[in-house]
Computed example of a mutant assay.
Amino acid sequence: MAHYLARHHDGPGSIAAACRAALQPPCSVGLTLAADAALARRISLCGDGPLADAGETLQINLGEGPCVQALQQRATVLAADLTDPGTVRLWPIFASQAQDRGIHAAFALPAASHPRFADRAGIVLSLYRDRSGPLSPADQHTAHIHLEAAQLLLQAACTSAPEDDPPFLRFTPRQAAVHQAVGVIMQRHHLSADHALDRLRAHAHSRGIDLSDLAHAVVHEGLALPD
């Protein structure tokens, strides 16, 4: 599969679409490359399905959720019911806001680190479903096959173009704004990247606004966050 997609230049977006089509019942699919759990070193490669954008955006905005935990623990995370008390304790805000957006189960499957990137880098395949219930062993197997294909495709793309990142590794405008805002806050307040991102997230949450919208205001409108 990875060989076919590489030859036809379809990229990881087709991996997500193929994975979603193969799962029963269908799930929305997100594919993320990250060096750690912080957005400062995380790229959402693609998404497919009606819940993927909401699920990926929530985890970027909040810094919590199954993909974040999978990156931190380097282990598969299976949240079959976002109303489960244990799940709510792990990700109180994500669990609530995900349900508001129609996500009732979420799963994250990490791949091994890629040699092109830092030791902590890795790919995570995230699955979002509009109903609660476990992910079947057969669907877990299918998802792992597609995840391995995505990793092989990434390796092939990086090996063939060592001087330039392939197009699917470039930030979307929304992601780029957040990364730029983190840099601005680091310079203004003399903070580390993690602390700058925490401050940006905290301000966005306290004001009830989207993280990327706040980042745009910081970068392009000169908005200064309070100390």
Rank of each mutant, 00 (worst) to 15 (best):
Y4K: 06
Y4C: 02
H9W: 14
H9Y: 11
H9R: 15
D10H: 12
S14L: 10
C19W: 03
R20L: 03
S28A: 12
T32E: 01
T32N: 03
A35V: 11
A37P: 09
A38R: 12
A38K: 01
L39I: 02
R41W: 11
L45V: 03
C46N: 02
G47Q: 01
G49P: 06
P50N: 00
P50R: 02
P50L: 01
L51E: 02
D53C: 06
L58Y: 08
I60Q: 05
E64H: 09
E64V: 07
C67T: 10
C67N: 07
Q72T: 15
T76Y: 01
A79Y: 13
A80Q: 15
A80I: 01
D81F: 12
D81Q: 04
T83F: 11
G86F: 04
I93A: 12
P110Q: 00
A111S: 04
A111H: 02
A112N: 02
A112G: 09
H114K: 00
P115V: 00
R116G: 11
A121C: 13
L127V: 01
S132P: 15
Q140S: 11
A150M: 02
A150P: 05
Q151Y: 11
L154A: 14
A156I: 10
C158N: 06
S160D: 09
P162R: 00
E163Y: 10
E163H: 14
D164E: 08
R170Y: 04
F171E: 08
P173E: 00
A176F: 03
A176Y: 05
A177C: 08
V184E: 06
S192E: 07
D194M: 05
D198S: 12
R199V: 00
R201F: 06
R207D: 13
L211T: 13
S212A: 15
D213C: 05
L214F: 09
L214M: 07
A215C: 08
A217H: 08
V219D: 11
E221A: 14
E221F: 05
E221C: 06
L223C: 05
L225H: 13
L225W: 11
L225A: 08
D227M: 07
